[in-house]
Write a protein that binds this DNA or RNA. Structure first.
Lengths: 338, 338
DNA sequence: CTGAAAGCGCTTACAG
DNA sequence: CTGAAAGCGCTTACAG
């Protein structure tokens, strides 16, 4: 049960140099002669030598490991973000430790302990928030923290957020322009910072327009919740004609409930706007007009921030969601095609 | 830029014991007195000590890290499997190193080198196949290999597969029972072992039934491909009335093309069967009858195999896909409800 | 049951 | 530019 594997010693012997030289030859900035480096590289190549990152991580203050802490990995938006993040991180020469926090409440804490055990250089939170005290422990251990669509940043961490509020406001404008007069807001009870911001942006803009607002909020953020949301909303005597769903997953469910359970035509009798622009929003059965998360930019921003030493002050990066216009919102005036 | 972090030495000092005792106190099977262990545990707790897995991985022949090698992480089926795998692995006390192989062709090789660098205990392949030589290198480094829905196993590795062929055959029987007579097979050009097996199972059963088979195969495995597949199939003069899509993603696209571009009613005029049972198959717009991947069982089998020392011979685990009956296949006889 | 010592594979001052 | 030496934080025979 032993693990052979070739070490720097083997390479040194073959190249006829010291172990120190092997290390230098393989370290980008190190001072070493061209000739020695070439000999070492050749020997390493020949033996199939791979630096043991465990050992190097023990010495240097960088392991190259970034922890990704997320729940609901199987969900469209999360999965997409995960893909983008791992890709960018790999391009930056980092490796991803994926920690799933679906189970139990103390799992964020356990995730962080794991991350510390493996001395990850940083932790990126896609879900959940670390308790204040734990976050501090992480930072004491030299970990940097990236919080995506989370609440509060703290020194040494960065917050990557979207202008969710603005999107909520814009949704109202779009719905009004579509001629809708009975607006509704459909959301889950998840209460994450992004959902709350989308909700309040929408709510405030509706009020500002002097209209009544129907609000329905239940369960977790899912297709199934959307189905129920749609059922409740469509069953009302003052059935809404325009609804903003804080998430595409819920929007899809809501659309299905409206169409199949109530025979409501979309967008003729009901306009729907979602958020996230998940792949399914683009499927012909939905053709959902939605605010797209700039996933690549989010991943890029997180990775970039981790790359450069960065200021110690808490940073906040705000990206904007861009509307993807499809066919779930009524168009009053036919576009003038030339 | 140094990383403080408390070490076993600190704990030893506080508890008034040697570093060796700290190690023993924190190792499940070690011989140590109850009293000493208690003192150590208390001290560790107090200092917030976390064993440095980098250092322990250097010594023991186990790092607790499992590499997960996958492409198209954002895709429904993959994302789901990823979620299940990380969950099971974590339950088993392992940690997941996620390696994304979407970029370039040599990325599987790079992925494996990364895995070796971090001395992962094993690598689980969800996509791609390691080159023979590289796989050998991995095994020489003591890594075990799990191949999910891949081709050939080799000693020291396990292959987890589905009875794809049987599902293909069964699809024919279902379609025939639904009264379909012009059967079609719709697939992508990905040519993975699972797709090939599903295809040949279907093809052979159609032939055995003495029917003609229309076969359409293009592009990558995606919704968009399904759209094109559906367009081609529905445009034929001998339009099929029953089709088996080797993947739900393609089935959804195919259904949309049939309905929205050709006005074909499903399941009245066209019966469709998919494979994977992704979440969207259950959405009301699709209600797709599909063969479900036993995702939890797959993840469980992989994890279990990694847990017990296992035989050195190549192992093969075959799981079966179970049909999830929905509403995309015509039912000739009304079920007799009591 | 416990401690002192060796060693895992690396990197990095320190001399030369 | 290079090598000998120290040390990262752990585990594990080896004595006692």
């Amino acid at each position: 049960m032993s693990r052979p594997s070739v070490s720097a010693k083997d390479v040194a012997d073959l190249a006829g140099v010291s172990r120190a030289s092997v290390s230098r030859a393989l370290t980008p900035g190190a001072t070493i002669s061209h000739e020695t480096r070439a000999r070492v590289v050749a020997a390493a190549e020949k033996l199939g030598y791979q630096v043991n990152r465990l050992a190097s991580g023990l010495i240097r203050n960088e392991t190259g490991i970034i922890a990704l802490i997320a729940s609901e990995i199987g969900t469209p938006y999360r999965a997409q973000l995960l893909g983008a993040l791992t890709e960018k991180l790999q391009q930056a020469g980092k490796v991803t430790l994926l920690i799933n926090t679906d189970r139990s409440d103390e799992s964020v804490e356990r995730a962080l302990r794991q991350a510390i055990s493996y001395r990850t250089d940083a932790a990126i939170f896609l879900s959940g928030m670390p308790a204040w005290s734990l976050a501090e422990t992480c930072q004491k251990n030299g970990m940097r923290l990236v919080l995506i669509n989370r609440d509060e940043a703290r020194p040494g961490s960065v917050l990557v957020r979207l202008d969710d509020r603005a999107a909520g406001e814009r949704a109202v404008a779009l719905l009004l322009a579509a001629g809708c007069r009975r607006l509704a807001l459909a959301s889950s009870e998840a209460g994450t910072p992004s959902l709350i911001a989308r909700e309040s942006g929408f709510r405030d803009a509706v009020r500002a327009a002097g209209l009544d607002l129907v609000e329905e909020r239940i369960g977790v953020t899912s297709y199934r919740t959307g189905l129920e949301l749609g059922t409740r909303l469509m069953a009302r005597s003052d059935r809404p004609d325009g609804v903003f769903c804080t998430t595409d997953l819920m929007a899809c469910g809501l659309m299905d409930a409206a169409r199949f359970r109530f025979g409501v035509e979309i967008p003729r009798a009901l306009s729907v706007i979602g958020f996230d622009d998940i792949a399914q929003a683009g499927w012909e059965s939905y053709a959902l007009t939605s605010f797209g998360q700039p996933i690549d930019k989010i991943a890029g921003a997180a990775t970039d921030w981790l790359q450069n030493p960065a200021e110690t002050a808490a940073a906040r990066i705000t990206l904007s969601a861009s509307l993807v216009w499809r066919n779930s919102v009524r168009q009053l005036h036919q576009p003038h095609n030339s």
